[in-house]
Design a protein around this nucleic acid. Sequence first.
DNA 1: ATGGTCGCCGAGCGA
Length: 265
Amino acid sequence: MKIATFNVNSINARLPRILEWFDKAKPDVAVLQEIKCVDEKFPAGEFEDRGYNVEVHGQKTYNGVALLSKHPVDDVVRGLPFLDDGSDKDDEQARYIEALVMPDAAAPVRVGGLYLPNGNPAPGPKYDYKLEWMKRLKKRAEKLLADEEAFVLAGDYNVIPQAEDVHDPAAWWGDALYRQETLDAFREIVNLGLTDAIRQADPAGILYTFWDYQRGAWEKDHGIRIDHLLMSPQAADRFKSAGVDRAERGKEKPSDHVPVWVELA
DNA sequence: ATGGTCGCCGAGCGA
């Protein structure tokens, strides 16, 4: 059971790259971020032709997330809940989608796809929104953990977890992606009992997932690791492997992020 | 070098 996350930076601008990657990587479930379109503009047919169920939480111009699954899905949640009753009416930004994925052979897995706010400039109102969003994500993780299910929270976290995850830690320190309040909020979520799939596979490797379009960041390997898959204990017990499809960044008209994936039993 | 590059959409914002 392969679960992948990919910030595509516009689904329609990236469609040839994405379909090529789907045909090769063959994920069972993929969550996409920054689709940058409303639901009606999402090219659902291209994925349905490949056997995927398509769930979209879109928005005009910015943000937007989607969840694609080869297996049946249930309990689809659009928007990160503000309250325990699941209401999300106050969040105007489309940054979260979740569903229960039910394979025939394997046990079900709940998958949350998230696009955590960038938060720059920090400090400021955008950074306040990021920290508020992280508190809400922690609440969601707490609620899901109480159910004792296998789940994976996957997406663009816009968090650099540690110095090994950035080419120049000193230059980045203080940025909304790499400053004390961000790391504290991220650790609060992880320390509920979640496992970083990439660090499970490779505790010390340099495994960047994003390279800026500017300043020749890709050519100089000036990357950061900000796309993560966090597993619940029940999912972590089923861990087989995980990886970063780094080569995607070197192709024609690439996203600035690359796909990251985990394989569960 | 106080820029550089994308994608949205059709100016300037967000990343």
